[in-house]
Simulated assay, not measured.
Amino acid sequence: MDKLRTVSDTKRNFYQYHNRPINSIYRRVVEELMVEMHLLSVNVDFRSDPIYYLGVCQSFTQFMNGYTPESDKDSIFRALCQSIDNNPDEYRGKAETMLNFASQKSPQELINWLLSPTDDNGLQDVANHWRYALENPKFKYSRLFAIGLYSFLAKSDAEIVKNEEKFAELITPLTDKLSLPIDKFKKDLELYRSNIEKMTQMLTVLADTLEASKKKRQNN
């Protein structure tokens, strides 16, 4: 019987793939995402799916915004996926396919597709992957899935995800089908939006501080 991979194993794997220091402001972001992906990867009920992949990619993009050096971001993302023996190109490829598809459809059409995925528009690989998760009687909810679903629908209509009542009504058929924990789903999205706002504010303050420091050096 294979030994179950531990968090320490995953962290060790990560730093083998990405061996450069991580900017201290972002280290917590990277490690929290790493641990979350690890815990799901070792959960017997969890099956990855394109919505989850999109959630991982969007979380990384949002919370690594402003990271320097910029060139390290790709290495960090790839190491996150490789640390749990996943393929980063598959994550990005399927996430991009989902966003491209979402940009061409209405939110209702997207929900209809999620409930009954078809292979149209070159979606065969993504549809098969989503169908595999959809048919799992023990579908495992995750915060990253919630972020992925939110991002998927926001790509179609940025306003509908801001309207709590309309958004809840729109996704009800899917949340019912998957038996998602609605209260946790709402809290996870509220925290996600709040953290994005905090990160944006922090980057603004940091940029202002660096600019002031630069001017001070120039004046001395």
Rank of each mutant, 00 (worst) to 15 (best):
P117F: 03
D120R: 03
S48N: 12
T200F: 00
L153F: 02
L40G: 13
K186Y: 07
V35P: 03
V56L: 05
I160D: 05
H129V: 03
A95D: 07
D89V: 06
R28D: 15
M37Y: 01
L123T: 14
P117W: 03
W130C: 01
I160V: 11
L191R: 14
F77H: 10
D72L: 04
E90R: 09
L123H: 11
N195Q: 13
E190T: 08
P181E: 08
D9P: 08
Y192M: 05
L149Q: 08
L99C: 03
T204N: 11
Q62P: 02
T10H: 10
S142A: 07
S142N: 01
C57N: 06
E159S: 13
K73Q: 13
K214Q: 09
L189P: 03
A168G: 07
G122K: 05
R217V: 13
A95V: 07
L123Q: 14
R12G: 07
F139A: 03
A158K: 01
K105Y: 04
Y52A: 04
N43L: 06
P181C: 00
D157Q: 10
D72H: 12
A79C: 03
M1V: 14
I160E: 04
G148C: 10
K198M: 12
S75P: 01
E90Y: 12
K162T: 10
D72C: 07
V126E: 09
S71G: 00
E197S: 14
T118V: 02
S71T: 02
V7F: 08
M34H: 00
M37T: 05
P137R: 06
I76C: 03
L134Y: 08
N219M: 11
F152K: 02
L153T: 06
E164Y: 04
E165C: 00
Y52H: 15
R5P: 10
